[in-house]
């Protein structure tokens, strides 16, 4: 459960105890649509399926039925100036499958700001409409006169 060095296990040796695990796990929004009881994590690349299962169960108290993992290859890019190839880090994704009756939905973490920005957009649209109507109203009786021509 961590990147430390442990004594080699030999028959009759003590059970491995992890006191200060240093693995990290991020709960991420799934890229593909998943069943409601599947949660996607990205985690330390050294973590095994058993590690993920134990981590969730012992530290977070989340029971899992099954865990699947994959390693996503980091993208490679060519440097625009010098032309060498740059590679992003590989990421390990873990899919934790919860019991059948449990449901997890990724929450919307930015609810307030979205509403505010929508309101602002509506406001500016209204204002634009108003100005356009004023312009049309003013030029009703004098067609083909440029917009800047006014007393």
């Amino acid at each position: 459960m961590s990147t430390r060095i442990y004594p080699l296990y030999q028959r009759g040796g003590p059970q491995l105890r992890v006191f200060l695990p240093n693995f990290w796990m991020k709960l991420v929004r799934p890229q593909q649509e998943q069943p409601p009881n599947v949660v996607q994590f990205s985690c330390s690349i050294e973590m095994t399926k058993f590690d993920v299962k134990n981590y969730l169960e012992k530290i977070y108290g989340v029971k899992t039925v099954d865990v699947r993992t994959r390693i996503a290859l980091g993208k490679t890019k060519r440097d625009l100036v010098n032309g060498y190839v740059v590679k992003e880090d590989d990421i390990k994704y873990a899919y934790a499958i919860l019991p059948k009756d449990e449901v997890f939905k990724f929450p919307n973490l930015f609810p307030k700001e979205v509403e505010e920005s929508q309101k602002q957009e509506e406001k500016s649209l209204e204002e634009a409409k108003k100005i356009y109507n004023q312009y049309v109203d003013r030029n009703k009786d004098r067609p083909n006169v440029p917009g800047w021509f006014s007393i």
Binding site: V39, Y60, P111
Partner: peptide, 17 residues
């Protein structure tokens, strides 16, 4: 206080946004 479960992966709801 232990919120429990997977919501511990997220911040307090008042800190969202």
């Amino acid at each position: 206080k232990c919120l429990g479960g997977l919501m511990e992966f997220f911040d307090d709801e008042k800190n969202w946004g």
